[in-house]
């Protein structure tokens, strides 16, 4: 599907006009991503926000057998959301492509330009980033204080990692 068509069908851009979305594509042209490529890693300096047009991405912590999958992100969702409005902040999770995909990478100068032009994209993104962050904070807090705590309460700290994996899989 044409990237402009995909954007038009994204719920987060429901209040944004077609010409405004066309302008977004001018400033952040679609970038193809190959399966298994690393989009961002823990500790990387965050420069941009990623809007997923197609494909699938795993958000993870840890490595090897200790890999903890936090979320699976697909079309219409965003990644690296904290960095766009917190310049210079560090990525707090790793993001890996699990299939071929197409994304937009929007940096803060492009966002500022859209805002200066009165484009509706920045407002839609603020709303989407805020809700996504709130959901991710809530999930991670529940993981720490709910899942880990229940493993300790049962005096089974060794089961904590397995319980965490099950929690995020749900």
């Amino acid at each position: 599907m044409d990237p402009h068509e995909i954007l038009l069908h994204m719920p987060m851009f429901s209040g944004v006009s077609p010409p405004e979305l066309a302008r977004l594509l001018e400033l952040a042209p679609p970038v193809p991503i190959s399966s298994e490529s690393l989009l961002m890693d823990v500790g990387d300096q965050g420069e941009d926000l990623v809007i997923v047009l197609s494909g699938g991405f795993a958000v993870e912590l840890g490595s090897g057998e200790g890999t903890l999958p936090l979320a699976f992100v697909g079309p219409g969702e965003i990644l690296g959301e904290a960095a766009l409005f917190r310049r210079g902040s560090l990525r707090s999770a790793r993001v890996r492509a699990v299939e071929d995909g197409l994304v937009l990478r929007l940096d803060s100068s492009a966002l500022d330009e859209l805002a200066r032009e009165g484009n509706g994209v920045p407002r839609s993104l603020e709303e989407a980033v805020m809700r996504t962050l709130a959901r991710r904070v809530h999930d991670s807090v529940m993981a720490i204080d709910g899942v880990l705590a229940s493993a300790f309460e049962a005096d089974e700290p060794r089961t904590a990692f397995t319980r965490l994996k099950e929690f995020f899989r749900r």
Partner: peptide
């Protein structure tokens, strides 16, 4: 967003 971003960084760092 700033407040939530700091919180996410802190909780993911704990994980």
């Amino acid at each position: 967003i700033l407040a939530l971003g700091s919180q996410l960084q802190a909780v993911n760092s704990r994980l």
